[in-house]
Design a protein around this nucleic acid. Structure first.
Lengths: 203, 203
DNA sequence: GGTTATTACATACTCTCGGTATGTTGCCAT
DNA sequence: ATGGCAACATACCGAGAGTATGTAATAACC
């Protein structure tokens, strides 16, 4: 690999600036009410530069979403990685995910706008990274004797269940309280689904 | 109440035609890719008539969504109403809901486009009717001794869980098989959540 | 029952905005 | 040096949401 030239750095910086501006504006005003001129101006370039880097408004949004999603997936993965017990990995990963969901950008872009702009199908392809984490955890739990038959549909439904609590947290006035309530509820639900026991700590 | 004049009938027919055309086009091509000229032409009027009846494209969509939602809620309610056992009312209502989800219009408008066009908040206000049904069923189950503590969040999460299976059905190639798989999964999950038992019939 | 107001549209227009076509400038290879 | 390409800027186009205005039919009022 060659050392990056100064020019290449500039290019990358421009691209990053565009993605950052787009992320911020899409989050604040939504996809439909954000104009590309606005995004470009906010990144101190013109629409020409934007279209040089991204083929369409939708493509720009897609790259923004991928970035946000990747960032959250990273956080979840690093949180769940250190525990020994699979159930503990699951719950700590879940906690990390719910915490990450306090992030406005993830809320608006990935959970709200994403499905409508790109369609659920494409959106779930991007979510595959995150979904894969959940899937792996479910498989581990199944191996370690949990009462569950893993299936893509189950993974998907559970993921959406957690996402919904994430949305609920985002809409609540008292986010701390909502976060706490959501954590308890989700843990309890997963416990009763996966273990057949009321709660995690009573089992 | 006075007898409806012929002119009032015409007006109502025009409005209904606009809603029907909009519903069909929004379903086929999505909200963003449907032009109001197209909707108007399909209803054999002009955009002037459309804007006389609806204040904006979004308002038009909102009325369409309300109509579709009401239709489905009606079906679910009439399906669950005749059983005696609350659990049976729940499962039969669920079946009706999943069946209704085979409806393309409900899929695309209420589950796909709705949240992004109107926002989750407004969308859930409209869904309140449906949500209320689920809430009432949960309350009944709680009364009849099910192990669960009803809460708005629980209702919401369970509703989204079922909705997700609905989306999965809609995307599947073999909808019959997907419908069957979804039915089993949802019933099983609800059973383990609400009763602490693996499945409904084993409990 | 003639005048006026209002309803229910149609027509014509504006203006924002996504997308494109066409410069322009500097770096890099040969 | 110079041709070419990368990384932008500038100028333009067309589609479509929303608006302003016109108009025919009906309803309201005296």
């Amino acid at each position: 690999m060659t050392v990056k030239t100064r020019r290449q750095e500039y290019v990358e910086a421009t691209r990053t600036a565009l993605l950052d501006s787009a992320g911020r504006l899409f989050t604040e005003k939504g996809f439909a009410h954000t104009s590309l001129d606005e995004v470009a101006a906010s990144a101190r370039v013109t629409k020409g530069a934007l279209y040089h880097h991204f083929s369409s408004k939708q493509a720009l949004f897609e790259h923004v979403l991928e970035g946000v999603n990747e960032r959250i997936a990273e956080a979840v993965m690093s949180a769940g990685g250190n525990a020994d017990d699979p159930w503990e990995r699951m719950t700590s990963g879940l906690d990390a995910f719910l915490d990450a969901c306090l992030d406005d950008e993830y809320q608006r872009i990935c959970l709200q706008q994403g499905p409508a702009v790109l369609g659920w199908e494409r959106c779930r392809e991007i979510e595959a990274r995150m979904m894969g984490l959940l899937d792996a955890m479910l498989a581990e739990l199944a191996d370690s004797g949990a009462r569950l038959t893993p299936s893509p549909l189950l993974t998907r439904v559970l993921f959406r269940m957690v996402s919904e609590t994430a949305l609920a947290i985002g809409e609540a006035e008292d986010k701390k309280a909502a976060r706490a309530e959501a954590g308890e509820l989700v843990t309890g639900l997963l416990a009763s689904i996966l273990r057949g026991a009321p709660t995690a700590d009573e089992g």
